[in-house]
């Protein structure tokens, strides 16, 4: 098992280097040079420009510059945001909890609804519950979630007044110091009556919107995984032994189908990040998705560069985790090759 993990880690290194190279070249591709980006449209004198170039190491060959970039990254220096002059790494990690909270809530909804829906569709294959589940799933899968979010705001926030339109907590009623930046945890620990409820109240609609596509994918994959497992010999044996259908499906079949489902859940992380950009924009959710959009709009290139790098590495690590988990649940994968 350790060897399996080690091999996987080893294979990550070239991709990781490639990602840093891509992030490095990203700024090089910009029209004009970084000094012009830094100094703005008005420009500076030729001498001052040369001085700045030397200061930033830009007079060195590209490969040397890349070396410096790698060295900086390894010592934890990811550059400064042009807009706030704060280190990009601090900007990123202070906003990450908000996105994680939203993503976890969305995944929870997606799994809690998607898995049972997929099971029901598989059991009732070809009958109306199957058609309903698959129809809804395909619609969810095709959904432009930025529009879906707006529709839900019109219905639940402005028409029915059930949920707030934006934000993470009712700021007028509750105030406490952010400790973890996970609002649910902070609100719980603050001990203020109703604070936790207010956070959940704010979280629910964005989480539902973000869960839409993963839920559809999970329902579809659970169904096909269940259908595959239900055709296996050992299921027939289980029935032949006289076990109840509930036991056969919930214990024997589901256990093996879930192997596929776990993988699918892990692979949703990338698209979850993309969805977070849209969801956070609609709900003014102060996470990294909204931050990235603002950085792009402001042409804050160090922030965009750092953000893309962090997200790519995070997605890669989650995929590694899924691979390892998959190898751990399913020995055939681990020992296969």
């Amino acid at each position: 098992m350790l060897k399996f993990i080690f091999n996987k880690l080893l294979m990550l290194i070239p991709t990781l280097l490639g990602i840093t190279l891509a992030a490095f070249l990203f700024v090089r591709l910009l029209p004009g040079d970084p000094v012009t980006v830094l100094t703005g449209e008005r420009g500076v004198s030729v001498e001052r420009k040369a001085e700045l170039m030397a200061q930033l190491g830009l007079d060195q060959p590209l490969i040397v510059q890349y070396g410096y970039y790698l060295k900086n990254i390894l010592s934890g220096d990811f550059g400064q945001s042009i807009a706030t002059h704060k280190p990009v790494i601090d900007e990123f990690f202070s906003r990450l909890p908000a996105t994680l909270e939203l993503a976890f809530a969305a995944m929870l909804i997606a799994v809690l609804l998607g898995v049972p829906a997929g099971i029901i569709a598989a059991i009732k294959r070809g009958h109306w519950p199957d058609h309903v589940v698959m129809g809804v799933a395909l619609t969810g899968y095709s959904m432009p979630i930025f529009w879906w979010g707006l529709l839900l705001i019109i219905l639940f926030s402005t028409t029915l007044g059930w949920t707030p339109v934006s934000g993470r907590i009712d700021l007028i009623k509750y105030y406490f110091e952010a400790e973890t930046n996970f609002m649910l945890i902070d609100a719980w620990r603050s001990g203020q009556a109703g604070a936790f409820g207010s956070v959940v109240h704010h979280l629910i609609l964005p989480a539902v919107v973000l869960s839409t596509i993963p839920m559809a994918v999970i329902a579809r994959q659970t169904r096909s995984a269940m259908l595959e497992v239900l055709g296996e010999d050992y299921i027939r044996t289980a029935y032949a032994k006289g076990l109840s259908p509930t036991r056969v499906i919930m214990v024997h079949a589901l256990r093996n189908a879930l192997i596929t489902v776990v993988t699918v859940i892990g692979l949703q992380v990338g698209s979850l990040m993309a969805g977070a950009v849209l969801t956070e924009t609609i709900f003014a959710w102060p996470g990294i998705g909204k931050w990235m959009i603002e950085a792009i709009a402001r042409r804050d290139y160090p922030a965009v560069q750092g953000g893309l790098l962090f997200i790519a590495v995070a997605v890669m690590l989650v995929n590694l985790l899924v691979d390892v988990l998959y190898g751990w649940i399913n020995p055939r994968v681990r020992d296969g090759k």
Binding site: P14, A22, F26, L29, G270, M273, V277, I296, A312, V315
Partner: peptide, 23 residues
Amino acid sequence: RIMDIILAFPSLLLALGMVAVLG
């Protein structure tokens, strides 16, 4: 390997990054 690098970025974010560069 190049394809792996592209795949490491969530598609919408990669597209956003590129548009940020290209305009």
